[in-house]
């Protein structure tokens, strides 16, 4: 009986350890000019991001302002990237730097915390955690 309880305790400890080790995921949303979307996707991918979705969007600059600039609308791209929490500060710092320094490369980026994801393989893929892939499958 005592042995069983010990085993249960050690199993629960193991589970706790596993839970502590797995990092949370965040959804990184980046809004940039459409012609710079590929550049920013490549940049974000270098921060261990395995899945990104990009979609066409338009900015909402006032018509008056656009008329003055001789433009009809502002073509934007919205990039959704799933990123591991511990990579967020570096990724955002890199984005912030590029927003400020690249001509026509301005934009905004923000993260929304994800609360759950189902499936070990899916979590491993999204978090770029190679430990979730079994040895014989590598």
């Amino acid at each position: 009986m005592a042995e069983r309880s010990n085993r249960q305790q050690s199993e629960s400890k193991k589970r706790k350890v596993n839970r502590l080790e797995s990092k949370r995921l965040e959804l990184l949303v980046t809004v940039v000019n459409r012609d710079k979307a590929d550049f920013y996707q490549d940049l974000i991918q270098s921060y261990e991001v395995n899945m990104q979705m990009s979609m066409r969007a338009k900015g909402t600059a006032s018509r008056q302002m656009l008329g003055l600039l001789g433009l009809e609308e502002t073509a934007k791209a919205v990039i959704f990237s799933v990123i591991r929490e511990d990579r967020v500060p570096d990724a955002l710092a890199a984005l912030e730097e590029r927003f400020a320094t690249i001509k026509g490369g301005g934009g905004i980026a923000y993260t929304v915390p994800m609360t759950s994801v189902i499936g070990v393989a899916m979590y491993g893929f999204l978090s770029n955690d190679e430990r979730t892939v079994k040895e014989d499958m590598r």
């Binding site: 900015g59 984005l95 912030e96 905004i108 923000y110």
Partner: peptide, 15 residues
């Protein structure tokens, strides 16, 4: 929970 690229109140207002 994290935002970058928002200009401050006195700068140009468009994203």
């Amino acid at each position: 929970d994290n935002v970058v690229g928002i200009k401050n109140e006195h700068e140009d207002t468009e994203e």
